[in-house]
Design a protein around this nucleic acid. Sequence first.
DNA 1: CGGCAATTCA
DNA 2: CGTAT
DNA 3: GCCG
Length: 562
Amino acid sequence: MRVKHLLGHQSLKYKNALRATGEVIMPFKRPRPPPVPHATNSSSTSTLLSTNHEHKRLRRGCLHGIKAYILSAKIDGAEYEILIGEAEENGAELCKTPAEADIIVTAIGMKKRLERHIDWNMAKGKAVVRPDWIRDSVKKSEALPCGDYAAISDLLDSSIENCPESSSSQSQPPDQAEASTSQHQSTKESTLPDLVYEPRYKSRFACERYSPLICPNQDLVKELHIIKLAREMESEERSALSYSRAISAIKAFPEKIKSMSQISDIPYLGDKLTGMIQEFLSKSTISQARQLSSDTRYQTLISFTSVYGIGPHTARHLYDLGLRTFDDLSRYLGSDDNAEGSGGSFAWREGLRLRDELSVKIPRAEVEEMGRLVDNALQDILPGSESTICGGYRRGKLESNDVDIVFTHPQGQGNKANNMIARLVERMRKDGLITHTMHAPSVRSKGSLRPPTNHDGWDTLDKSLTIFNLPKTSPYYKGIHRRLDLIYAPREVYWTAVVGWTGSTMFERDLRLWAKQKGLKFDSSGITRRRDTKALYATSERDVFKLLELEWIEPRLRNADL
DNA sequence: CGGCAATTCA
DNA sequence: CGTAT
DNA sequence: GCCG
Protein backbone atom coordinates (compact mmCIF):
# COMPACT_ATOMS: atom_id res chain seq x y z
CA MET A 1 0.00 0.00 0.00
CA ARG A 2 2.90 2.23 0.62
CA VAL A 3 3.92 1.49 -2.87
CA LYS A 4 0.67 2.53 -4.30
CA HIS A 5 0.73 5.71 -2.41
CA LEU A 6 4.17 6.53 -3.61
CA LEU A 7 3.28 5.90 -7.18
CA GLY A 8 0.29 8.13 -7.05
CA HIS A 9 2.29 10.82 -5.47
CA GLN A 10 5.00 10.68 -8.02
CA SER A 11 2.79 10.79 -11.00
CA LEU A 12 1.15 13.83 -9.60
CA LYS A 13 4.39 15.68 -9.36
CA TYR A 14 5.14 14.50 -12.80
CA LYS A 15 2.12 16.26 -14.14
CA ASN A 16 2.99 19.38 -12.29
CA ALA A 17 6.37 19.32 -13.83
CA LEU A 18 4.82 19.15 -17.22
CA ARG A 19 2.54 21.97 -16.56
CA ALA A 20 5.33 24.03 -15.19
CA THR A 21 7.33 23.66 -18.31
CA GLY A 22 4.40 24.31 -20.49
CA GLU A 23 2.85 27.36 -19.09
CA VAL A 24 3.80 28.63 -15.75
CA ILE A 25 7.39 29.21 -16.37
CA MET A 26 7.32 30.03 -20.00
CA PRO A 27 7.67 33.70 -19.97
CA PHE A 28 6.81 34.26 -23.55
CA LYS A 29 3.22 33.45 -23.75
CA ARG A 30 1.88 35.90 -21.30
CA PRO A 31 -0.26 38.71 -22.33
CA ARG A 32 2.44 41.18 -22.95
CA PRO A 33 2.43 44.84 -22.43
CA PRO A 34 2.94 47.07 -25.40
CA PRO A 35 6.47 46.97 -26.71
CA VAL A 36 7.71 49.73 -24.54
CA PRO A 37 11.05 49.36 -22.92
CA HIS A 38 9.64 48.82 -19.51
CA ALA A 39 13.00 48.05 -18.18
CA THR A 40 14.34 51.05 -16.44
CA ASN A 41 13.30 53.07 -13.53
CA SER A 42 10.05 54.24 -14.91
CA SER A 43 8.17 52.70 -12.09
CA SER A 44 8.29 54.47 -8.83
CA THR A 45 9.88 52.97 -5.81
CA SER A 46 12.92 51.67 -7.51
CA THR A 47 16.14 52.80 -6.07
CA LEU A 48 18.99 53.94 -8.16
CA LEU A 49 21.11 51.03 -7.41
CA SER A 50 19.11 48.90 -9.67
CA THR A 51 19.72 50.96 -12.74
CA ASN A 52 23.33 50.61 -13.46
CA HIS A 53 25.20 47.44 -13.42
CA GLU A 54 22.82 44.66 -12.72
CA HIS A 55 19.94 45.15 -15.00
CA LYS A 56 17.52 44.65 -12.26
CA ARG A 57 14.28 45.17 -13.77
CA LEU A 58 12.66 46.44 -10.75
CA ARG A 59 10.51 43.71 -10.37
CA ARG A 60 9.42 44.07 -6.84
CA GLY A 61 7.92 40.66 -6.88
CA CYS A 62 4.66 39.87 -5.24
CA LEU A 63 6.47 38.26 -2.34
CA HIS A 64 8.83 41.14 -1.86
CA GLY A 65 10.04 41.55 1.68
CA ILE A 66 8.61 38.29 2.90
CA LYS A 67 11.03 36.12 4.78
CA ALA A 68 10.30 32.52 4.00
CA TYR A 69 11.70 29.22 5.04
CA ILE A 70 11.03 26.30 2.75
CA LEU A 71 11.27 22.97 4.47
CA SER A 72 12.74 20.49 2.06
CA ALA A 73 11.37 17.42 3.80
CA LYS A 74 8.76 15.57 1.80
CA ILE A 75 9.40 17.70 -1.26
CA ASP A 76 11.41 16.10 -3.99
CA GLY A 77 14.52 17.75 -5.24
CA ALA A 78 13.19 19.09 -8.49
CA GLU A 79 10.04 20.41 -6.92
CA TYR A 80 12.06 22.02 -4.18
CA GLU A 81 14.21 23.80 -6.71
CA ILE A 82 11.15 25.16 -8.42
CA LEU A 83 9.70 26.46 -5.21
CA ILE A 84 12.90 28.16 -4.25
CA GLY A 85 13.16 29.61 -7.70
CA GLU A 86 9.63 30.93 -7.71
CA ALA A 87 9.93 32.38 -4.26
CA GLU A 88 13.22 34.08 -4.94
CA GLU A 89 12.17 35.20 -8.37
CA ASN A 90 9.27 37.01 -6.84
CA GLY A 91 11.17 38.82 -4.18
CA ALA A 92 10.90 36.55 -1.19
CA GLU A 93 13.88 36.41 1.07
CA LEU A 94 14.77 32.82 1.73
CA CYS A 95 15.97 31.94 5.20
CA LYS A 96 18.37 29.26 6.20
CA THR A 97 16.57 28.52 9.42
CA PRO A 98 12.90 28.60 10.29
CA ALA A 99 13.61 30.92 13.17
CA GLU A 100 14.43 33.86 10.92
CA ALA A 101 11.38 33.42 8.75
CA ASP A 102 7.94 34.97 8.84
CA ILE A 103 6.43 32.14 6.94
CA ILE A 104 7.25 28.47 6.74
CA VAL A 105 6.42 26.51 3.63
CA THR A 106 6.06 22.78 4.03
CA ALA A 107 4.52 19.76 2.39
CA ILE A 108 4.14 18.10 5.74
CA GLY A 109 0.58 17.98 6.93
CA MET A 110 0.88 16.36 10.31
CA LYS A 111 1.81 17.97 13.56
CA LYS A 112 3.86 15.01 14.69
CA ARG A 113 5.95 14.98 11.58
CA LEU A 114 6.46 18.69 11.45
CA GLU A 115 7.72 18.67 15.01
CA ARG A 116 10.60 16.54 13.90
CA HIS A 117 11.87 19.44 11.84
CA ILE A 118 10.61 22.54 13.51
CA ASP A 119 10.02 23.52 17.08
CA TRP A 120 6.33 23.64 17.73
CA ASN A 121 6.36 26.78 19.79
CA MET A 122 8.25 28.56 17.11
CA ALA A 123 5.82 27.34 14.50
CA LYS A 124 2.99 28.80 16.51
CA GLY A 125 4.49 32.22 16.09
CA LYS A 126 4.50 32.04 12.33
CA ALA A 127 2.40 31.27 9.33
CA VAL A 128 2.85 27.68 8.21
CA VAL A 129 1.57 27.04 4.71
CA ARG A 130 1.52 24.46 1.98
CA PRO A 131 3.75 24.82 -1.06
CA ASP A 132 0.89 25.77 -3.32
CA TRP A 133 0.70 29.06 -1.48
CA ILE A 134 3.78 30.09 -3.40
CA ARG A 135 2.55 28.98 -6.76
CA ASP A 136 -0.88 30.50 -6.32
CA SER A 137 0.49 33.74 -4.94
CA VAL A 138 2.76 34.06 -7.90
CA LYS A 139 -0.05 33.32 -10.27
CA LYS A 140 -2.22 35.98 -8.72
CA SER A 141 0.71 38.30 -8.30
CA GLU A 142 -0.03 38.91 -4.68
CA ALA A 143 0.76 37.24 -1.42
CA LEU A 144 -2.41 35.33 -0.71
CA PRO A 145 -4.00 34.91 2.71
CA CYS A 146 -2.23 32.19 4.63
CA GLY A 147 -5.39 30.96 6.20
CA ASP A 148 -6.42 29.39 2.93
CA TYR A 149 -3.19 27.48 2.75
CA ALA A 150 -2.54 26.45 6.32
CA ALA A 151 -0.44 23.32 6.21
CA ILE A 152 -1.61 22.03 9.56
CA SER A 153 -5.06 22.46 10.96
CA ASP A 154 -3.82 23.09 14.46
CA LEU A 155 -1.91 26.04 13.12
CA LEU A 156 -4.73 27.56 11.14
CA ASP A 157 -5.33 30.40 13.55
CA SER A 158 -1.72 31.30 14.06
CA SER A 159 -1.19 31.15 10.33
CA ILE A 160 -3.94 33.67 9.79
CA GLU A 161 -2.66 35.76 12.64
CA ASN A 162 0.92 35.83 11.49
CA CYS A 163 0.44 35.97 7.80
CA PRO A 164 3.09 38.30 6.42
CA GLU A 165 2.31 40.97 3.88
CA SER A 166 4.35 41.73 0.90
CA SER A 167 5.98 45.12 0.95
CA SER A 168 5.31 45.48 -2.72
CA SER A 169 2.21 47.51 -2.74
CA GLN A 170 1.21 47.48 -6.32
CA SER A 171 1.18 44.26 -8.15
CA GLN A 172 3.47 44.58 -11.06
CA PRO A 173 3.42 43.39 -14.59
CA PRO A 174 4.93 40.01 -15.08
CA ASP A 175 8.53 40.89 -15.15
CA GLN A 176 11.15 38.99 -16.90
CA ALA A 177 11.19 40.14 -20.34
CA GLU A 178 8.98 38.03 -22.36
CA ALA A 179 10.42 38.22 -25.74
CA SER A 180 8.14 40.39 -27.64
CA THR A 181 7.62 38.28 -30.64
CA SER A 182 7.56 41.17 -32.95
CA GLN A 183 10.91 42.26 -34.03
CA HIS A 184 11.36 44.62 -31.24
CA GLN A 185 12.32 48.17 -31.49
CA SER A 186 15.97 48.67 -31.21
CA THR A 187 15.25 51.26 -28.65
CA LYS A 188 17.54 54.10 -28.99
CA GLU A 189 15.93 56.19 -26.44
CA SER A 190 17.96 55.79 -23.31
CA THR A 191 21.23 54.82 -24.81
CA LEU A 192 22.42 53.18 -21.67
CA PRO A 193 24.95 50.66 -22.87
CA ASP A 194 23.57 47.89 -20.79
CA LEU A 195 20.06 48.14 -21.94
CA VAL A 196 20.51 45.19 -24.13
CA TYR A 197 19.80 42.24 -22.00
CA GLU A 198 16.57 40.35 -21.58
CA PRO A 199 17.40 36.78 -22.30
CA ARG A 200 15.54 36.11 -25.47
CA TYR A 201 15.69 34.09 -28.59
CA LYS A 202 17.85 36.60 -30.39
CA SER A 203 20.73 36.15 -28.03
CA ARG A 204 23.91 34.68 -29.32
CA PHE A 205 24.47 32.28 -26.44
CA ALA A 206 22.23 29.42 -25.47
CA CYS A 207 22.85 30.30 -21.83
CA GLU A 208 21.01 33.61 -22.36
CA ARG A 209 17.96 32.06 -23.91
CA TYR A 210 14.96 30.25 -22.51
CA SER A 211 14.92 26.79 -24.00
CA PRO A 212 11.95 24.64 -23.05
CA LEU A 213 11.96 20.88 -23.25
CA ILE A 214 9.50 20.93 -26.12
CA CYS A 215 9.29 23.95 -28.36
CA PRO A 216 6.61 25.08 -30.80
CA ASN A 217 8.82 24.01 -33.70
CA GLN A 218 9.74 20.62 -32.39
CA ASP A 219 9.12 18.84 -35.70
CA LEU A 220 11.45 21.13 -37.56
CA VAL A 221 14.08 20.70 -34.89
CA LYS A 222 13.81 16.92 -35.10
CA GLU A 223 14.39 17.03 -38.80
CA LEU A 224 17.51 19.15 -38.39
CA HIS A 225 18.68 16.83 -35.65
CA ILE A 226 18.87 13.98 -38.12
CA ILE A 227 21.16 15.96 -40.36
CA LYS A 228 23.25 16.94 -37.41
CA LEU A 229 23.66 13.30 -36.39
CA ALA A 230 24.69 12.39 -39.90
CA ARG A 231 27.40 15.03 -39.79
CA GLU A 232 28.62 13.61 -36.52
CA MET A 233 28.66 10.10 -37.89
CA GLU A 234 30.95 11.32 -40.64
CA SER A 235 33.07 13.32 -38.20
CA GLU A 236 32.19 16.61 -39.81
CA GLU A 237 32.17 18.17 -36.41
CA ARG A 238 32.06 21.80 -37.38
CA SER A 239 29.13 21.25 -39.60
CA ALA A 240 27.45 19.27 -36.84
CA LEU A 241 28.12 22.15 -34.48
CA SER A 242 26.34 24.53 -36.78
CA TYR A 243 23.27 22.34 -36.83
CA SER A 244 23.42 22.08 -33.05
CA ARG A 245 23.47 25.84 -32.81
CA ALA A 246 20.65 26.28 -35.24
CA ILE A 247 18.62 23.74 -33.31
CA SER A 248 19.27 25.42 -30.03
CA ALA A 249 18.41 28.82 -31.43
CA ILE A 250 15.14 27.54 -32.85
CA LYS A 251 14.32 25.84 -29.59
CA ALA A 252 14.28 29.21 -27.91
CA PHE A 253 11.95 30.76 -30.47
CA PRO A 254 8.61 31.22 -28.76
CA GLU A 255 6.13 30.60 -31.50
CA LYS A 256 5.39 28.30 -34.36
CA ILE A 257 7.15 29.38 -37.52
CA LYS A 258 4.68 29.88 -40.30
CA SER A 259 6.49 32.20 -42.61
CA MET A 260 10.07 33.01 -43.41
CA SER A 261 9.66 36.57 -42.25
CA GLN A 262 9.51 35.35 -38.69
CA ILE A 263 12.93 33.82 -38.57
CA SER A 264 14.97 36.78 -39.69
CA ASP A 265 16.36 37.47 -36.27
CA ILE A 266 16.93 33.97 -35.07
CA PRO A 267 20.70 33.61 -34.92
CA TYR A 268 22.67 30.84 -36.61
CA LEU A 269 20.38 30.50 -39.59
CA GLY A 270 22.50 31.16 -42.65
CA ASP A 271 21.88 30.34 -46.28
CA LYS A 272 21.86 26.61 -45.85
CA LEU A 273 19.66 26.43 -42.82
CA THR A 274 17.33 29.07 -44.18
CA GLY A 275 16.85 26.99 -47.28
CA MET A 276 16.05 23.94 -45.26
CA ILE A 277 13.50 25.79 -43.18
CA GLN A 278 11.89 27.10 -46.31
CA GLU A 279 11.57 23.57 -47.57
CA PHE A 280 10.15 22.48 -44.26
CA LEU A 281 7.53 25.21 -44.35
CA SER A 282 6.13 24.01 -47.63
CA LYS A 283 6.55 20.26 -47.27
CA SER A 284 6.73 19.63 -43.53
CA THR A 285 9.87 17.63 -44.14
CA ILE A 286 13.43 18.19 -45.26
CA SER A 287 14.46 15.97 -48.13
CA GLN A 288 18.00 15.50 -46.86
CA ALA A 289 16.70 14.27 -43.54
CA ARG A 290 14.22 11.94 -45.20
CA GLN A 291 16.95 10.54 -47.35
CA LEU A 292 19.32 9.97 -44.46
CA SER A 293 16.65 8.28 -42.41
CA SER A 294 16.37 5.54 -44.97
CA ASP A 295 20.06 5.31 -45.67
CA THR A 296 21.70 2.06 -44.60
CA ARG A 297 25.02 3.60 -43.78
CA TYR A 298 23.40 6.27 -41.63
CA GLN A 299 21.22 3.78 -39.80
CA THR A 300 24.09 1.40 -39.21
CA LEU A 301 26.44 4.05 -37.91
CA ILE A 302 23.75 5.36 -35.59
CA SER A 303 23.12 1.90 -34.18
CA PHE A 304 26.81 1.10 -33.75
CA THR A 305 27.48 4.31 -31.89
CA SER A 306 24.68 3.43 -29.52
CA VAL A 307 27.07 0.90 -28.03
CA TYR A 308 28.93 2.42 -25.14
CA GLY A 309 32.54 2.89 -26.15
CA ILE A 310 31.92 2.98 -29.87
CA GLY A 311 32.06 6.41 -31.44
CA PRO A 312 31.85 7.60 -35.03
CA HIS A 313 35.35 6.57 -35.93
CA THR A 314 35.00 3.01 -34.77
CA ALA A 315 31.52 2.75 -36.17
CA ARG A 316 32.71 3.74 -39.61
CA HIS A 317 35.55 1.27 -39.35
CA LEU A 318 33.21 -1.55 -38.49
CA TYR A 319 30.90 -0.51 -41.27
CA ASP A 320 33.74 -0.55 -43.74
CA LEU A 321 34.52 -4.08 -42.65
CA GLY A 322 31.08 -4.98 -43.87
CA LEU A 323 29.33 -5.31 -40.54
CA ARG A 324 25.72 -4.16 -40.45
CA THR A 325 23.92 -5.54 -37.46
CA PHE A 326 24.51 -6.11 -33.79
CA ASP A 327 24.72 -9.79 -34.61
CA ASP A 328 27.52 -9.07 -37.03
CA LEU A 329 29.16 -7.03 -34.36
CA SER A 330 28.70 -9.72 -31.78
CA ARG A 331 30.15 -12.35 -34.07
CA TYR A 332 33.04 -10.15 -34.96
CA LEU A 333 33.88 -9.45 -31.36
CA GLY A 334 33.34 -13.04 -30.43
CA SER A 335 36.13 -14.22 -32.64
CA ASP A 336 39.04 -12.73 -30.87
CA ASP A 337 41.37 -13.39 -33.72
CA ASN A 338 40.77 -9.91 -34.97
CA ALA A 339 44.04 -8.15 -34.97
CA GLU A 340 42.91 -4.68 -34.06
CA GLY A 341 41.65 -3.22 -30.90
CA SER A 342 41.58 -6.25 -28.70
CA GLY A 343 42.19 -3.42 -26.27
CA GLY A 344 38.79 -1.95 -26.84
CA SER A 345 37.16 -5.29 -27.29
CA PHE A 346 36.37 -5.88 -23.69
CA ALA A 347 34.60 -2.59 -23.25
CA TRP A 348 32.73 -3.10 -26.48
CA ARG A 349 31.67 -6.55 -25.51
CA GLU A 350 30.28 -5.29 -22.26
CA GLY A 351 28.74 -2.34 -24.00
CA LEU A 352 27.14 -4.61 -26.53
CA ARG A 353 25.93 -7.05 -23.93
CA LEU A 354 24.27 -4.26 -21.97
CA ARG A 355 23.11 -2.20 -24.88
CA ASP A 356 19.52 -3.38 -24.96
CA GLU A 357 19.02 -2.67 -21.31
CA LEU A 358 20.79 0.67 -21.36
CA SER A 359 18.67 1.88 -24.23
CA VAL A 360 15.56 1.64 -22.10
CA LYS A 361 14.59 5.04 -20.78
CA ILE A 362 14.35 5.68 -17.06
CA PRO A 363 11.10 7.19 -15.78
CA ARG A 364 11.33 10.06 -13.32
CA ALA A 365 10.05 8.04 -10.40
CA GLU A 366 12.81 5.54 -10.87
CA VAL A 367 15.41 8.25 -11.21
CA GLU A 368 14.22 9.53 -7.86
CA GLU A 369 14.43 6.07 -6.35
CA MET A 370 18.00 5.80 -7.56
CA GLY A 371 18.69 9.18 -6.03
CA ARG A 372 17.36 8.00 -2.68
CA LEU A 373 19.49 4.89 -2.72
CA VAL A 374 22.59 6.84 -3.57
CA ASP A 375 21.85 9.36 -0.86
CA ASN A 376 21.23 6.63 1.70
CA ALA A 377 24.58 5.09 0.96
CA LEU A 378 26.14 8.52 1.12
CA GLN A 379 24.63 9.37 4.50
CA ASP A 380 25.92 6.08 5.78
CA ILE A 381 29.44 6.90 4.75
CA LEU A 382 29.44 10.54 5.70
CA PRO A 383 26.33 11.83 7.44
CA GLY A 384 25.37 15.32 6.41
CA SER A 385 26.54 14.94 2.84
CA GLU A 386 24.38 16.47 0.15
CA SER A 387 23.43 15.28 -3.28
CA THR A 388 21.54 16.62 -6.26
CA ILE A 389 20.21 14.71 -9.22
CA CYS A 390 21.28 16.71 -12.25
CA GLY A 391 21.23 15.93 -15.95
CA GLY A 392 18.09 15.66 -18.01
CA TYR A 393 16.02 14.78 -14.98
CA ARG A 394 16.74 18.14 -13.48
CA ARG A 395 15.83 19.83 -16.72
CA GLY A 396 12.42 18.26 -16.46
CA LYS A 397 12.73 15.37 -18.87
CA LEU A 398 10.08 12.78 -18.30
CA GLU A 399 12.47 9.97 -19.07
CA SER A 400 16.22 9.88 -18.80
CA ASN A 401 18.93 7.96 -20.55
CA ASP A 402 21.11 8.01 -17.50
CA VAL A 403 21.28 9.54 -14.04
CA ASP A 404 23.82 12.10 -12.95
CA ILE A 405 24.23 12.68 -9.25
CA VAL A 406 26.49 15.39 -7.89
CA PHE A 407 27.35 15.22 -4.23
CA THR A 408 29.51 16.92 -1.66
CA HIS A 409 30.62 16.28 1.88
CA PRO A 410 29.03 17.80 4.99
CA GLN A 411 29.72 21.41 5.82
CA GLY A 412 31.81 21.47 8.92
CA GLN A 413 35.47 22.13 8.83
CA GLY A 414 37.97 21.26 6.20
CA ASN A 415 38.24 18.43 3.80
CA LYS A 416 38.29 15.47 6.04
CA ALA A 417 36.40 13.97 3.17
CA ASN A 418 38.78 11.86 1.25
CA ASN A 419 38.15 9.38 -1.46
CA MET A 420 34.46 10.06 -1.43
CA ILE A 421 33.94 8.58 -4.86
CA ALA A 422 35.86 5.44 -4.16
CA ARG A 423 34.16 4.89 -0.85
CA LEU A 424 30.71 5.49 -2.21
CA VAL A 425 31.20 3.27 -5.21
CA GLU A 426 32.70 0.52 -3.11
CA ARG A 427 29.85 0.69 -0.67
CA MET A 428 27.25 0.55 -3.42
CA ARG A 429 29.10 -2.26 -5.12
CA LYS A 430 29.01 -4.31 -1.94
CA ASP A 431 25.32 -3.65 -1.68
CA GLY A 432 24.91 -4.96 -5.17
CA LEU A 433 23.71 -1.61 -6.49
CA ILE A 434 26.65 -0.95 -8.76
CA THR A 435 27.61 -3.78 -11.07
CA HIS A 436 30.20 -2.13 -13.30
CA THR A 437 32.50 0.84 -13.25
CA MET A 438 33.18 2.00 -16.73
CA HIS A 439 35.92 4.19 -15.55
CA ALA A 440 37.55 4.72 -12.24
CA PRO A 441 38.91 7.99 -11.04
CA SER A 442 42.66 7.99 -11.18
CA VAL A 443 44.27 6.78 -8.06
CA ARG A 444 45.12 10.11 -6.66
CA SER A 445 45.88 8.96 -3.25
CA LYS A 446 47.45 10.49 -0.29
CA GLY A 447 51.02 10.23 0.71
CA SER A 448 53.84 11.99 -0.96
CA LEU A 449 52.27 12.39 -4.34
CA ARG A 450 51.40 15.98 -4.92
CA PRO A 451 48.29 16.51 -6.91
CA PRO A 452 49.26 18.74 -9.83
CA THR A 453 46.96 21.69 -9.59
CA ASN A 454 45.46 21.76 -6.24
CA HIS A 455 46.11 23.69 -3.12
CA ASP A 456 45.90 21.94 0.17
CA GLY A 457 43.58 19.04 -0.25
CA TRP A 458 43.49 16.22 -2.65
CA ASP A 459 40.15 15.54 -4.08
CA THR A 460 38.93 18.29 -6.26
CA LEU A 461 36.41 16.78 -8.55
CA ASP A 462 36.06 13.13 -9.14
CA LYS A 463 33.59 11.09 -11.03
CA SER A 464 32.71 7.52 -11.57
CA LEU A 465 30.71 6.32 -14.53
CA THR A 466 28.90 3.20 -13.46
CA ILE A 467 26.24 0.67 -14.22
CA PHE A 468 23.55 0.49 -11.61
CA ASN A 469 20.84 -2.00 -10.82
CA LEU A 470 17.97 -1.55 -8.38
CA PRO A 471 17.69 -4.07 -5.57
CA LYS A 472 15.01 -6.72 -6.10
CA THR A 473 13.18 -5.37 -3.09
CA SER A 474 12.61 -1.98 -4.66
CA PRO A 475 9.10 -1.27 -5.88
CA TYR A 476 10.65 0.01 -9.08
CA TYR A 477 12.73 -3.06 -9.71
CA LYS A 478 12.61 -4.14 -13.32
CA GLY A 479 15.90 -5.96 -13.51
CA ILE A 480 17.19 -3.42 -15.97
CA HIS A 481 20.68 -1.99 -15.70
CA ARG A 482 21.04 1.78 -15.72
CA ARG A 483 23.83 4.18 -16.41
CA LEU A 484 24.67 6.13 -13.29
CA ASP A 485 27.26 8.89 -13.07
CA LEU A 486 28.44 9.84 -9.63
CA ILE A 487 30.28 13.10 -9.29
CA TYR A 488 32.00 14.36 -6.22
CA ALA A 489 32.59 18.07 -5.80
CA PRO A 490 34.25 19.76 -2.86
CA ARG A 491 31.93 22.16 -1.06
CA GLU A 492 33.32 25.33 -2.60
CA VAL A 493 32.54 24.20 -6.10
CA TYR A 494 29.40 22.22 -5.42
CA TRP A 495 27.08 24.67 -7.16
CA THR A 496 29.33 25.09 -10.14
CA ALA A 497 29.32 21.33 -10.46
CA VAL A 498 25.54 21.25 -10.26
CA VAL A 499 25.29 23.82 -13.03
CA GLY A 500 27.95 21.99 -15.00
CA TRP A 501 26.14 18.69 -14.76
CA THR A 502 22.65 19.96 -15.39
CA GLY A 503 23.31 20.72 -19.03
CA SER A 504 22.14 20.61 -21.67
CA THR A 505 25.23 20.12 -23.78
CA MET A 506 24.79 23.26 -25.86
CA PHE A 507 23.88 25.22 -22.79
CA GLU A 508 27.18 24.16 -21.23
CA ARG A 509 29.25 24.87 -24.29
CA ASP A 510 27.81 28.34 -24.49
CA LEU A 511 28.29 28.90 -20.78
CA ARG A 512 31.98 28.36 -21.39
CA LEU A 513 32.07 30.63 -24.41
CA TRP A 514 30.15 33.26 -22.50
CA ALA A 515 32.53 32.99 -19.58
CA LYS A 516 35.52 33.27 -21.87
CA GLN A 517 34.07 36.39 -23.40
CA LYS A 518 33.72 37.78 -19.87
CA GLY A 519 37.34 37.07 -19.10
CA LEU A 520 36.42 34.11 -16.97
CA LYS A 521 36.81 30.41 -17.23
CA PHE A 522 33.95 28.15 -16.39
CA ASP A 523 33.77 24.46 -15.91
CA SER A 524 32.16 22.10 -13.50
CA SER A 525 35.15 22.32 -11.20
CA GLY A 526 34.89 26.02 -10.73
CA ILE A 527 34.97 29.55 -12.05
CA THR A 528 38.29 31.28 -12.40
CA ARG A 529 39.39 34.67 -13.58
CA ARG A 530 41.55 34.25 -16.67
CA ARG A 531 43.79 37.13 -15.70
CA ASP A 532 45.25 35.55 -12.62
CA THR A 533 43.41 32.23 -12.41
CA LYS A 534 41.90 33.39 -9.19
CA ALA A 535 39.06 31.15 -8.16
CA LEU A 536 35.58 32.59 -7.63
CA TYR A 537 33.32 30.59 -5.39
CA ALA A 538 29.58 30.48 -5.71
CA THR A 539 27.37 29.85 -2.72
CA SER A 540 24.24 28.88 -4.58
CA GLU A 541 23.20 27.98 -8.07
CA ARG A 542 21.97 31.48 -8.71
CA ASP A 543 25.28 32.75 -7.47
CA VAL A 544 26.97 30.88 -10.29
CA PHE A 545 24.94 32.89 -12.76
CA LYS A 546 25.61 36.06 -10.85
CA LEU A 547 29.36 35.51 -10.90
CA LEU A 548 29.17 34.91 -14.62
CA GLU A 549 27.07 38.07 -15.02
CA LEU A 550 24.28 36.03 -16.50
CA GLU A 551 20.55 36.32 -16.08
CA TRP A 552 19.14 33.42 -14.16
CA ILE A 553 17.71 30.64 -16.24
CA GLU A 554 16.01 27.87 -14.49
CA PRO A 555 16.97 24.27 -15.13
CA ARG A 556 13.81 23.45 -17.05
CA LEU A 557 14.61 26.18 -19.54
CA ARG A 558 18.10 24.95 -20.26
CA ASN A 559 17.01 22.39 -22.84
CA ALA A 560 19.07 23.85 -25.65
CA ASP A 561 19.46 20.51 -27.41
CA LEU A 562 17.29 18.01 -29.18
C1' DC B 1 39.73 33.98 -42.15
C1' DG B 2 40.05 32.00 -37.44
C1' DG B 3 37.28 30.06 -34.04
C1' DC B 4 34.01 26.91 -32.56
C1' DA B 5 33.86 23.88 -24.65
C1' DA B 6 36.77 21.67 -22.00
C1' DT B 7 38.63 17.79 -19.73
C1' DT B 8 39.56 12.97 -18.55
C1' DC B 9 40.51 8.19 -19.26
C1' DA B 10 42.21 3.79 -21.55
C1' DC C 1 43.71 9.26 -31.07
C1' DG C 2 39.05 8.12 -30.05
C1' DT C 3 35.61 8.35 -26.71
C1' DA C 4 33.29 9.75 -22.81
C1' DT C 5 31.26 13.44 -19.90
C1' DG D 1 28.00 25.89 -41.32
C1' DC D 2 27.81 30.34 -39.13
C1' DC D 3 29.70 34.50 -36.83
C1' DG D 4 32.61 38.52 -35.73
